[in-house]
């Protein structure tokens, strides 16, 4: 059972990250829902999607308190950090964060997602680096199993590349507590 928001700016693959997450979670037998911000909500540069994963029937697909926040840029972090419940997980893309203090009531982890993806040569896969970090930190699904599901997602789409799993694994390896 997890209430999650993934956020960033347009083009960072936020919505895809959410779709990969529900693809894998649904395959694990969970109920899932995915909703995205669109239109007027999106003006101002923040794109986000809400994901609910549950063993029960899902009521509201718009979680009020978050178990996990995945923030791919600083404005997204600022926008949603107040919604994370005490003890919840926050994974940030440190490539795009300034030096700052993080709140103590939540568990904040970071990975240089944009830099990692660029170094690996797949500059559109920072979202996968973030997913790797998220699985490692939350243990929601084991890192290996989620990796298989991620490959499956791209295989079904017909455009998998070897750098996808490489970026994902790098995220799992390099994530650090902040």
């Amino acid at each position: 059972m997890a209430d999650i928001i993934m956020a960033g700016f347009g083009g960072q693959g936020i919505l895809t990250a959410g779709k990969i997450l529900i693809h894998v979670a649904a395959g694990e037998g969970k109920n899932v829902s995915w909703t995205s911000s669109y239109g007027a909500e999106m003006r101002g540069g923040t794109a986000s999607c809400s994901v609910v994963i549950s063993d029960e029937e899902i009521g509201s697909p718009y979680p009020a308190k978050l178990d996990v926040l995945l923030a791919m840029n600083e404005p997204s972090f600022d926008k949603f950090i107040g919604d994370v419940r005490d003890g919840g997980y926050v994974i940030v893309n440190t490539s795009l964060m300034s030096k700052r203090e993080y709140p103590k009531n939540v568990q904040v982890y970071g990975v240089d997602a944009t830099d990692k993806a660029n170094n690996i040569g797949n500059n559109r896969a920072a979202n996968l680096v973030m997913l790797g970090a998220m699985m490692k930190v939350t243990g929601m699904v084991s890192v290996d199993k989620f990796g298989e599901g991620l490959q499956d997602y791209f295989d079904l789409k017909g455009h998998n590349t070897s750098t996808n799993i490489e970026c994902y694994s790098a995220g799992a390896e390099d994530v650090k507590a902040l």
């Binding site: 649904a26 899932v32 829902s33 995915w34 909703t35 669109y38």
Partner: peptide, 9 residues
């Protein structure tokens, strides 16, 4: 707009 745009099983 919510039910139309959400993804579920």
């Amino acid at each position: 707009g919510a039910v139309s745009q959400m993804i579920e099983k």
